[in-house]
Design a protein around this nucleic acid. Structure first.
Lengths: 200, 200, 200, 200
DNA sequence: AATGAATGAGGATTCATTCAT
DNA sequence: GATGAATGAATCCTCATTCAT
């Protein structure tokens, strides 16, 4: 049935789903997921509570989709940036992008950190290892690393970027974007200063 | 609450209170505070629910006290370590201590990050600024920093340490303590490599 | 038992007991008994909560004793006043005394009205019938009443006095004592105007 | 989970709200609001506890609505009756109506008296002043009153009617309706006997 | 005589979820 | 597609009461 009337309805249906997604995104950027009720999300989206369940099945699934959306969006762009010819510039661009991404989607870090706590490390671990893998790909084009240092170094860069980005999102006045990026890149500078360059 | 602070000699009096503190500490290390019920804390401490309220007034106050306890303990020791003669060694000892502290009190980071989200930046901000102040005191004995870089750099070190420590606390198998400490110190190495030494 | 030692103890015991009585009296004047906790009473009296139970056995018994104390005090004085030679003057004095009594012991009316609701009409009914009996004794010295009118008339006077006195206790600015007494006495004036005088 | 549909009674949309209202009305007629739990109200209405909150938001709001409903219903009818041509008859009809109203809605007086105690004199004062205003409108068509006597006299009639009506609602055997109305009207008789008639 | 610690039953409220329409 | 009504489990908290000291 693709009568004009039902088409019009489908457009509006998609509308509801997207509005809910945006609303949840906004609300979850400031508060822990437990502190955001389905009522609040529905109200912020201007739809009824039932619509949340109609479109997403459950609160957890809605949150999961936000998390997945964020993780994929982040990784996609980061992978693209990581492919740049100059590894140092690529790393810096990655940090820059991460910084801006967190500013745009504060809910994402919020949710990811929250998930980190639960024992079900499914998507969480996945993102973490995807991130460190990607970082290491670029780092190894820059310096030679001991096997045992790889994960710690990558995790440190990842953590420094995430943490400072998150702090910036909360209290934005006193942490200038470029200075923070510079500070995070110091880890890489430290590597360059103390490690042999990558053999190519 | 009419508890004269001078008479803390009663052994049994402190017993329930301490057991509750420990139990809350343990439970809050693995889960978000909203996900830990007062019932669970009381049960884990082997006391009745009412005892939580008798001793702490409310769940929030119990959590607050854990947070304060952790913040003070952390800052006390860190201040002591920061006073060491060699600034680089002092910084490394600080990172080492932070790493071990988080391993011992995972609940603390958990709670602190949680607080970070809420808008009530009272104790949260305090710890953050106390930490960055202390870090900067030591850093400035090591290198000369632009005014605008101070807070970003200190926040980066703080964040990298906290984040990696927290990740270690969750999944301890693949992040060796010493390598992580080395990785966090890379930020300092980067500073040393790119900045003029402190004048003294 | 009137040994010196026990006397001395009785003095101190009486002290706590009386302080509790006064404190309860004050607190119960402004709030419903359910809204006044034993903690509050003990705190207001400057003693520990256990002392309430040591002295009164339970919250209910403490309240009961206040109620009994008030009922007896009120009835004693009212009986004395009722015996005056002029029945109209006696009635007016009774109303005056009741008005002042309620102003002094607002908790009393409060508690009595509260008890009124419960099905256990023990002390409540007793006071009510003692009051109406006393009123009727005086009224019958003034006018002749049909048997069926006695209780309604006495209850009306009782109620008018209690209600206005209670309203005065709450919002004291706009109800002058003497006008209120005059207004309550209008019921008696109405009787005098429409009823044959008592035969004596 | 949920009980099978066969066991559960289907309740119509508006039904639940009204059933809750009635149930609360009944329960609050016999007990102080603090002594009536939301569980009891829900059980008496045959709905779940959550339904109380869905329909009324809170226990206080439910009680408020009962109070408002009663106050409006009482005032509406009383205003209508007060407009009658003969002021004495109008007053008597007002008392009669009040008497019957309290018999029908004992909860109302109960709640009103309870509110009286709290310091939040919002709705309470309103009803009180609306009542005395209305009474005075009619009284002034009957007799001339000193300014200072107006409020006391009106409050006395209001109180006498409310109090006796409430006593009747509790122990109905010994206070006949007509005799009580007669007794309350004695205040008016007293005024007529001692005051100059209204000019007009 | 007095108390501080502890208790547990009970109460108000929230909220994710279900379901008939 | 969407919704409003209803639910009940779970949660935080209060408070009268008990008891060892």
């Amino acid at each position: 049935m693709t009568t004009p009337a039902s088409q019009r309805q489908r457009v509006r249906a998609t509308d509801s789903k997207e509005r809910l997604f945006e609303a949840a995104m906004t609300l979850l950027g400031n508060r822990a997921p437990e502190a955001v009720s389905v009522d609040q999300i529905a109200a912020a989206a201007g739809v009824s509570k039932g619509t949340v369940y109609y479109n997403y099945g459950s609160k957890d699934q809605l949150i999961s989709q936000i998390l997945d959306f964020g993780a994929n969006k982040l990784m996609d762009e980061l992978s693209r940036v990581a492919a740049g010819p100059d590894p140092y510039a690529a790393l810096k661009h990655m940090v820059e992008f991460a910084m801006d991404f967190v500013a745009s989607y504060p809910a994402f870090v919020q949710l990811w950190m929250q998930e980190q706590l639960h024992a079900d490390l499914a998507s969480t671990t996945t993102l973490h290892s995807r991130m460190t893998d990607l970082l290491l790909q670029v780092l190894e084009r820059l310096v030679r690393l001991d096997e045992a240092d790889k994960l710690p170094v990558a995790t440190t860069i990842f953590g420094a970027a995430l943490f400072t980005a998150r702090v910036r999102a909360t209290r934005r006045e006193d942490l200038a974007r470029d200075q923070v990026i510079y500070a995070v890149m110091l880890t890489v500078d430290g590597l360059l200063a103390t490690r042999p360059p990558a053999t190519g």
